[in-house]
């Protein structure tokens, strides 16, 4: 097979990068532009839109709410999905195809349908339109993002033999899960947490329908601003990106710390 000319190859890569990056750069510039409509570049620059966003009474409330929902969704996912996945892998491997299938369902059900169905079924207190219901909905919605990386990591290690050797040494299931399995699937757990956090943090439909005005999340505020002034919305988007990036860095830093003993041991050799 003939290799593609280098020029064409680089051009394709450049186009792809531009496709991915340009909107983000544009958003950043727009968020600090005084006026940007008929000129190629903005007519002037200002931090006014950030000021407006920060000063908005709902800014910190919605940011906090979004953090609460995202972190709760990550924790609930860790608490339920990781042990379930481990359990299915070791005890009932025959149920794994079923679990795989179940974990695709959230992709197939539109968020609107999920939200409206949950609102009707859980119409009674304390669930009705509460943050609890929103968190539960987000857990269901983001389940595949936790499940897939964890399941893949479990397949990459010899869970069975590791479990059995820990058992023969006298460990109970909780000790095995926390001291043997979790550390060895840490990369999967971390990327699952990251994906769940990012997905839930940016989730609009569920929050808008389930809690709406009673428990506003950051994306709801962002959409409200879109209707008022695109530049403030751009500023909020930039803040949203930044939160997602900070979360990634925090998680990667956490995983780096997890790997450190290995490097120390290597250095000592």
């Amino acid at each position: 097979m003939k290799q593609r000319p280098l020029v064409l190859q680089s051009l394709l890569v450049a186009l792809f990068v531009a496709y991915m990056i340009l909107p983000i750069i544009a958003t950043y510039i727009f968020s600090i532009a005084t006026k940007w409509d008929i000129t190629l570049m903005p007519e002037g620059y200002t931090l006014e839109w950030y000021q407006t966003a920060f000063d908005h009474p709902y800014f910190s409330i919605t940011l906090t709410n979004s953090f609460i929902v995202s972190i709760a969704a990550v924790l609930v996912g860790l608490l339920f999905i990781v042990p379930t996945t481990y359990w299915v892998h070791t005890r009932v491997p025959s149920a794994k195809p079923l679990l795989d299938l179940l974990m695709i369902l959230p992709f197939g059900i539109p968020a609107v349908v999920l939200a409206l169905a949950l609102i009707r079924v859980y119409a009674f207190p304390p669930f009705a339109r509460s943050p609890f219901l929103l968190i539960s909905a987000c857990v269901i919605f983001s389940m595949p993002f936790m499940y897939r990386p964890v399941s893949n990591s479990l397949m990459a290690i010899d869970v069975h033999t590791l479990t059995e050797s820990a058992l023969s040494l006298g460990a109970n299931t909780l000790q095995i899960l926390l001291r043997v399995i979790a550390p060895n699937i840490l990369p999967g757990i971390l990327s699952g947490s990251l994906l769940v956090f990012a997905t839930v943090f940016a989730e609009f439909t569920l929050a808008n329908l389930i809690t709406g005005a009673s428990f506003k999340t950051f994306p709801i505020l962002l959409v409200e601003f879109t209707r008022r002034d695109g530049r403030i919305a751009a500023a909020l988007s930039v803040i949203s990106f930044t939160v997602a990036w900070l979360a990634s860095i925090a998680i990667l830093w956490g995983s780096g710390r997890g790997r450190k003993p290995t490097e120390e041991a290597l250095g000592a050799r």
Partner: peptide, 27 residues
């Protein structure tokens, strides 16, 4: 199995990859 007091050695070693030798033996 975790109450039998039987020590098991597997064909695939099955050492805990996240632990150093000391922690493996101490587990």
């Amino acid at each position: 199995p975790n109450k039998r007091g039987t020590g098991m050695v597997f064909q695939a070693y099955a050492l805990f990859p996240n632990m150093n030798v000391r922690d493996n033996v101490a587990f």
